[in-house]
Write a protein that binds this DNA or RNA. Structure first.
Length: 638
RNA sequence: CGGGGCGUAGCGCAGCUUGGUAGCGCGUUUGGUUCGGGACCAAAAGGUCGGAGGUUCAAAUCCUCUCGCCCCGACCA
């Protein structure tokens, strides 16, 4: 009969409090703020050595190993092979991908005695690509998926929240290599396997999580999903459609059809004569809102982006800009601006550049784009309004005065653009044209270019509204394509005897961050409430009288039997009073507590209590307690 | 990188304005009384006050420089 395994080895551990190191404290270090940081520190799981650098003490390391083991099992199960790459990466490795430039100061560097510089790997696309390049020549050797669980380094500008954003952290990173995107052995097949494996990992960890569509970010690539642990303290905003299950992070989230105004975009009489007002020192929406006592939804926010051009485009068309216009209470979404304009990238124009082009940053109105070659105005649907349907009157807009320290009231699209925006927009109101860029004629378009908000229409289900939540990113999968293989010259010979670019995917899990996220999501005022699968121990046996040989013997007996069933046991054998023992038990958050004391023993029983339960616990006959615990653990782990 | 703040015992803090050779709580050690949700009494150990320079008879305290750490922000005008 196969024994079910709960822990990291078939036989469970039996450890004694007095023989391990669990330095609990009543007070948290002054710099700890987030729950995971406070409790992991107070409960003796981690200890800070420097900014964003932490010791993992025995309890913390046990949790880290358990998460790692789950990750390892699921990766192996999905056909990935574990390997181990160096942390120190010669800086020359980045010559072809230029990512040492893209990463900038985020990259830790060390210099050896000869003056040679090494980066401490923040991720490992380059070394894995380099390694595969030297090891694989034929399509017959693909696909392959390789992973490691490795310490990573990032010189974060501001490390914070303990393990959540450290400068040194444990990460699982996998890289897959293919000759095709579709079909058997293609990238999509592995991507889907990884998606499933990640779902298994976080489900097995006992975490409540959401998978969201994501922007691929600086790592590059074509498609990606993020795995977010749902927690109020999360740094990332995610949006979900309750009807369709669609979920995305705020950078990526689409907004469903928004009804066009009844009279059409931009149409409507002015709300009054254009009035210039002096707004000294008020470049921001908030400043103006306070100063003029107008509502932000009556302001137009104009943000100037510079188009990232290739040298060829630059020579042909010169520098090009996009002026994105959204309502004052909305946020411009850079990715949507980029996509709407149909360009490969945009970046915020700096103040000097903008001024040179005639834009007064902080006080820009859409009028500033008039008559300027190479400037496209992209107006969000909620900003392309002339008549306020809800209010039944002309829309009142406040926008920039196009000179420092001035705004204007009663802006009207049709009157003040001096050219009929309706006609201009009519060309391509819905399509992703290139507008006035690349020598085109259109200078203005209407599109979805703002961040989604709670209450916005779902893009996947008519009538449903998006909801927001907070999340902690613990996993991220990308379809990389040929970005790295092309840059570094990784190709294989195909069946047709022709060289083929290798198509890559990459898949990361923040292992140490997952530990912290688990605490963010699972704690109460007394301490951590570990999910069973990643708890440092499954069972804590608390001895009320550590000096009683009988009690100790019983604890040993129960612990031994539990261990034989794969259960990890910690025996609190400290000669302490009950108070501190119970407080520490709650703090370290072991899921099951067995209390051995005179009271229960008189009834031939031990006291059983789960960490999550609020009651005092129940008495279970000593002869049945092992089976009882095994049962409960099995239930809890599904 | 900009702004703010903090470095004094393992942890949390006071002392600094007004210089005079360091204190409190928790924890730790010893003895005793206790013993089911952070006990009590008594004794004790533990700090070159982040570092370097300076002023002074005398510096945790004043001055200069440094290093470390935390928080907010980092370009949505």
């Amino acid at each position: 009969m196969a024994t079910k395994t709960f822990g990291i080895s078939p036989r469970g551990a039996v450890h004694r409090w007095t023989q391990t190191l669990i330095p609990t404290t009543r007070e948290a270090p002054a710099d700890a703020e987030s729950p995971s940081h406070v409790f992991l520190s107070r409960a003796g799981f981690i200890r800070k050595l420097g900014a964003g650098i932490y010791d993992f003490l025995p309890l913390g390391y046990r949790v880290l190993k358990k998460v790692s083991q789950i990750v390892r099992e699921e990766m192996d199960g999905a056909g990935a092979m574990e390997l181990h790459l160096p942390v120190m990466l010669p800086i020359e490795l980045y010559n072809e991908t230029k990512r040492h430039v893209a990463y900038g100061d985020l990259l830790f560097k060390v210099t050896d005695r000869k003056g040679a510089v090494c980066a401490l790997g923040p991720t490992h696309e380059e070394p894995i690509t380099e390694m595969v390049k030297g090891s694989i020549n034929s399509y017959k050797q693909l696909p392959i998926n390789l992973y490691q669980i490795q310490t990573k380094f990032r010189d974060e500008a501001r490390p914070r929240s303990g393990l959540l954003r450290g400068r040194e952290f444990l990460m699982k990173d996998a890289y897959s290599f293919h000759t095709a995107v579709e079909g058997p052995g293609g990238l999509n097949e592995t991507y889907d396997k990884m998606h499933a494996a990640y779902t298994n990992v976080f489900r097995r960890c006992g975490l409540d999580f959401t998978v969201v569509e994501a922007e691929s970010g600086p790592i590059g690539g074509s498609a990606s999903h993020e795995f977010m642990v749902n927690a109020a303290s999360g740094e990332d905003t995610i949006l979900k459609c309750p009807a369709s299950g669609y979920a995305a992070n705020v950078e990526k989230c689409e907004i469903g059809p928004r009804p066009a105004p009844a009279k059409g975009y931009f149409a409507g009489e002015p709300s009054g004569a254009l009035e210039e007002v002096h707004t000294p020192g008020c470049p921001g929406i908030e400043d103006v809102v306070k100063f003029l006592k107008v509502k932000p939804q009556h302001m137009l926010k104009s943000v100037l982006f510079k188009v990232q051009s290739t040298p060829e485009d630059l020579a042909k068309y010169g520098e090009e800009f996009i002026l994105a216009v959204v309502r004052g209470d909305h946020d411009v979404n850079e990715g949507k601006v980029r996509d709407a304009a149909g360009v490969s990238g945009v970046e915020l124009a700096d103040v000097k550049e903008a001024a040179a082009k005639g834009f007064a940053v902080g006080f820009i109105s859409p009028r500033a784009a008039l008559g300027k070659k190479g400037v496209l105005v992209v107006v969000d649907r909620d900003a392309a309004i002339g008549f306020d349907d809800a209010a039944g009157k002309p829309k009142f807009w406040v926008t920039g005065g196009d000179k420092i320290d001035y705004h204007v009231k009663h802006f009207n699209w049709q009157r003040d653009l001096g050219k009929d925006p309706l006609a201009a927009a009519a060309h391509k109101p819905e399509t992703h044209g290139t507008g006035g860029l690349r020598g085109g004629d259109d200078y203005l378009m209407v599109a979805d270019v703002r961040n989604a908000l709670a209450g916005d229409p779902s893009p996947r289900s008519a009538g449903a509204k998006l909801e927001t939540g907070r999340g902690i990113e613990v996993g991220h999968i990308f379809k990389l394509g040929t970005k790295y293989s092309d840059a570094m010259g990784l190709s294989v010979l195909g069946a047709d005897q022709q060289k083929k670019s290798v198509i890559m995917g990459c898949y990361g899990i923040g292992v140490s961050r997952t530990v912290a996220a688990a605490v963010e999501q699972n704690h109460d005022e007394n301490g951590i409430v570990w999910p069973v699968a990643i708890a440092p121990y499954h069972v804590l046996i608390t001895l009320m009288r550590a000096d009683s040989a009988d009690h100790a013997a019983l604890a040993d007996k129960i612990a031994g039997e539990l261990a034989a069933r794969g259960v990890d046991v910690l025996i609190d054998d400290r000669d302490e009073r009950p108070g501190p023992k119970f407080k520490d038990a709650d703090l370290i958050g072991v899921p099951i507590r067995l209390t051995i004391g005179e009271k229960a023993l008189a009834a031939g029983a031990v006291e059983f209590k789960t960490r999550r339960a609020t009651d005092k616990g129940s008495l279970v006959p000593t002869g049945e307690i092992v089976e009882w615990c095994v049962q409960k653990i099995g239930d809890a782990m599904g």
